[in-house]
């Protein structure tokens, strides 16, 4: 009981900051509406990029459009939610250049936790809606035998997908302490990872399977669970049973992320001044 109250008291500052960020975003109604629309538009265009390919050919990498919708839906929904909660880790180079990161050091809270809870991008909810609709459409179109196993797989994969993408943002953040202006280098794998995750991994070359199948476990966020759910033939180097290993992939991604974060923070010598 006393522990519960103590925990609540410790979490309260984070909740207050997040609530204030949410309020500040929604208080300018017109601006927030425009943000929602542009975020929706970016989700729709990303879906359109996939749709256009499947309009030109009916099957790609052994999948038809209904099946890729499931891959896209799972991966994109997970990415959008992770982006909403962790996306502002991208702004670390700006904080580093301006020296405003040092403010975080003045507070008796862990640095990473402060950075993550310093903002929440509500506008990305509309993007997540695109992923959700694609996911539902993909589930409806697919020939899925529903039982406890498939529901569990879907939930496990979504949760670990969100965790995996969140880890990517933290991983990139940790490396910004070294890169600062070279942020595009990590973008290649964070946003390139999103792009890869919404593709049929069966078309990848072997090096791509190593990079986006295993090292950055992007195939685990959409493609591999979809292979199990839809009972598709698994491509070489990515066996079907991996579809159940989303949580392991998320653990691996977080281990890498926290290592890079720790490494980055140790390297940091303050903004001067």
């Amino acid at each position: 009981m006393a522990d519960g109250i103590a925990l609540r008291a410790r979490l309260r500052p984070y909740a207050v900051v997040l609530a204030s960020r949410a309020r500040s975003q929604t208080s300018y109604r017109a601006n927030f509406a425009l943000d929602l629309v542009s975020s929706l538009l970016s989700g729709l265009v990303e879906l359109a990029e996939v749709w256009v390919l499947f309009h030109a050919v009916t099957r790609l990498g052994g999948l038809d459009f209904g099946q890729i919708l499931l891959v896209f839906g799972m991966a994109d929904l997970a990415f959008s939610l992770a982006n909403m909660l962790f996306g502002h880790c991208d702004r670390l180079p700006t904080y580093l250049r301006a020296g405003t990161l040092d403010i975080f050091y003045l507070r008796p809270q862990p640095l990473l936790l402060q950075l993550v809870t310093s903002d929440i991008s509500l506008r990305r909810l509309s993007r997540a809606a695109v992923g959700l609709v694609a996911l539902v459409a993909g589930l409806a179109a697919g020939d899925i035998t529903w039982n406890v196993g498939t529901v569990a797989l879907l939930v496990i994969s979504l949760v670990s997908g969100i965790a995996t993408f969140a880890a990517m943002f933290v991983w990139a953040g940790g490396l910004q302490f070294f890169l600062v202006e070279g942020e595009e280098m990590t973008n290649a794998f964070v946003y390139g990872g999103r792009y890869a995750a919404t593709q049929p991994a069966s078309v990848w070359s072997r090096p791509l399977k190593v990079v986006f199948g295993y090292f950055f476990p992007m195939a685990f966020t959409g493609f591999l669970p979809a292979v199990v759910l839809l009972d598709l033939p698994a491509p070489a180097w990515l066996p079907a049973w991996l579809g159940w290993c989303g949580p392991l992939a998320a653990l691996w991604a977080w281990a890498m992320a926290l290592l890079c974060w720790r490494w980055g923070v140790r390297h940091y010598r303050g903004g001067g001044g």
Binding site: E181, E184, M185, A188, F212
Partner: peptide
């Protein structure tokens, strides 16, 4: 360094585009 970062990003996206578009 920004140029190097851009190079890494452009190459990675390029290889992903090659995979999916060649398959198409």
């Amino acid at each position: 360094l920004a140029a190097l970062g851009g190079l890494v990003a452009n190459t990675t996206f390029g290889l992903l585009k090659v995979a999916v578009l060649f398959a198409t």
